[in-house]
């Protein structure tokens, strides 16, 4: 009985507070409306939601996002990192509650983030989607790295450097569309060159420890290796450790990917283990942020959106000792 009574009390309290909230919610829009009619330009509000920095590349994303936001102090920024899709949905819900004008989103996963992105789109929020797309066309601008080009250019470099003849190991990332696009494009190049033999292929999950483990196994199985297509700099470092522990560092070299500053430095210093690297710039989040600002800042959104591209494919570049300086950011965390 007492339980029921207290349940009722709790319910009453809840509904009271909800009522109070409705009251304040109802009157809330008025002052902001007058604020926008007053000449003083209202600050635009942009939410930035990205995955938490769980490996090098995402750490780079966070660093570049902060750089781009700092360059635009006139914008009111709401920045959140999320390690799960659920947290990211909550973050975006909170951003909408606070009335953001624009959202820059790098999705942790596509399917769970689609409904909330759709809701944001229906609310008229400008959505800039970076690198991982939604399942429905709800983003105003979508920019992503060109993963097929990543696979093709990296494989072509290996074929050229081996003069079309040699034994290659393939390290794959987490199974997903990004990995598939890269590996398929690379394999197309390798298969077109009969002199290239794939002597080992496994997944390093874009993770240093996992790559160390699988590379150890591959080293046991393959007596001769000329080059490792590691497709990621974290995986390259894991593979390198296995190679050095096996004492076979003079036998082969590695091509990683993504442009981690430590690797770029070693390319610059002509380290024989890393003759080159290939970019997949985490700075693309900054590109997206800057685009959102430029669309929203002067209230000419509709005019600007007439000529803004809706889908941008960012090409990747080979980093060689000659041009490494341009890709070397010693202050970046990545």
């Amino acid at each position: 009985m007492t339980m029921l009574r207290s349940l009722a009390a709790a319910g009453a309290l809840l509904s009271l507070s909800l009522l109070a909230a409705c009251g304040s919610g109802g009157t809330e829009p008025a002052p902001s409306a007058t604020a926008s009619t007053v000449a003083a330009a209202p600050k635009i509000k942009i939410g930035v939601s990205v995955p938490a920095a769980d490996h090098g590349w995402t750490a780079g994303v966070v660093w570049w996002a902060k750089e781009a936001m700092a360059l635009n102090p006139d914008v009111e920024w709401l920045f959140q990192t999320a390690e799960t899709p659920d947290k990211q949905i909550q973050d975006i819900e909170n951003m909408m509650t606070q009335g953001v004008d624009g959202l820059v989103v790098l999705a942790t996963e596509s399917a769970p983030l689609t409904p909330i992105a759709k809701q944001a789109h229906e609310n008229g929020i400008l959505i800039v989607n970076v690198d991982r797309g939604f399942l429905e066309p709800v983003a105003d601008i979508f920019l992503e790295g060109d993963n097929a080009s990543f696979g093709r250019k990296s494989a072509e470099f290996i074929v050229d450097r081996l003069d079309g003849k040699g034994k290659v190991v393939i390290l794959e990332g987490i199974p997903c569309t990004v990995n598939t696009a890269r590996v398929d494009a690379a394999m197309e190049v390798f298969n077109a060159n009969p002199g290239i033999e794939i002597v080992g292929r496994d997944t390093g999950m874009w993770n240093r420890q996992k790559s160390l483990d699988v590379m150890q196994n591959i080293l046991v199985q393959a007596p001769e290796i000329d080059a490792v297509w590691a497709s990621d700099d974290d995986m390259a470092l894991g593979a390198e450790q296995a190679i050095v522990e096996a004492g076979r560092q003079d036998e082969m070299w590695i091509l990683g990917g993504a442009g981690m500053k430590d690797i770029v430095k070693r390319v610059m210093d002509k380290d024989p283990m890393y003759p080159a690297d290939i970019t997949y710039p985490p700075s693309m989040i900054a590109t997206g942020i800057q685009m959102a600002v430029s669309v929203l800042e002067d209230g000419n959104r509709e005019e600007i959106m007439k000529f803004m591209p809706q889908h941008l494919l960012i090409d990747v570049e080979l980093i060689l000792p000659e041009n490494a300086k341009r890709h070397y950011f010693p202050d970046s965390v990545f």
């Binding site: 909230a21 919610g25 909550q90 819900e93 509650t97 606070q98």
Partner: peptide, 16 residues
């Protein structure tokens, strides 16, 4: 203040 008491926020809290 307002950000928390907005009905939308309270609803999101329950839903999450």
């Amino acid at each position: 203040g307002d950000a928390f008491l907005k009905p939308e926020n309270l609803r999101n809290l329950l839903n999450q």
